Amino acid sequence: MAGSRSNQLVVPQANQAIQQLKLEAAQELGVQIPQDGYYGNVSTRDAGSLGGYITKKLVQIAEQQLSGGSR
């Protein structure tokens, strides 16, 4: 299923970092990540929590970079 997605990364090399961020978010929130990578069976609440957490972390990283701070 992963090959049929329509989203394209602007920086394809960032894929590993994004996957790591997903894993960290899932661990922090106690959400079980599907082994096959298919998120269709993840509850809407869990998927929303993951998305919100990831967005929050990405904003924090961007703010740190813009302020000249390190991660």
Results as ranks from 00 to 15, higher is better:
1 M>E: 08
1 M>D: 09
1 M>Y: 05
1 M>N: 06
2 A>H: 05
3 G>A: 13
4 S>P: 00
6 S>E: 12
7 N>D: 05
8 Q>R: 13
9 L>C: 01
9 L>F: 04
9 L>W: 04
10 V>E: 09
10 V>M: 03
10 V>C: 01
10 V>Y: 02
11 V>P: 01
12 P>E: 03
12 P>D: 05
12 P>A: 03
13 Q>E: 11
13 Q>M: 00
14 A>Y: 04
16 Q>N: 06
17 A>H: 07
18 I>D: 01
21 L>I: 02
23 L>Q: 15
23 L>V: 09
24 E>S: 11
24 E>W: 06
25 A>S: 08
26 A>R: 10
26 A>H: 10
26 A>D: 03
26 A>V: 07
26 A>G: 04
27 Q>H: 10
28 E>K: 14
28 E>V: 04
28 E>T: 13
29 L>A: 08
29 L>R: 10
30 G>D: 11
30 G>F: 13
30 G>W: 10
34 P>S: 11
34 P>M: 07
34 P>Y: 12
34 P>K: 11
35 Q>W: 05
37 G>S: 10
39 Y>S: 11
42 V>G: 07
42 V>P: 08
42 V>W: 11
43 S>T: 15
43 S>Y: 15
44 T>Q: 15
44 T>R: 11
46 D>L: 10
47 A>L: 14
49 S>D: 13
50 L>Q: 04
50 L>I: 10
50 L>P: 03
51 G>M: 07
51 G>L: 05
52 G>V: 03
52 G>L: 07
52 G>K: 10
53 Y>A: 04
53 Y>E: 08
54 I>W: 00
54 I>A: 01
54 I>H: 00
55 T>F: 02
56 K>G: 04
57 K>T: 06
57 K>G: 00
57 K>P: 00
58 L>P: 02
58 L>T: 09
59 V>R: 10
60 Q>K: 13
61 I>V: 14
61 I>N: 08
62 A>D: 14
64 Q>P: 02
64 Q>E: 15
65 Q>C: 05
66 L>N: 07
66 L>I: 03
66 L>W: 09
67 S>D: 10
71 R>H: 08
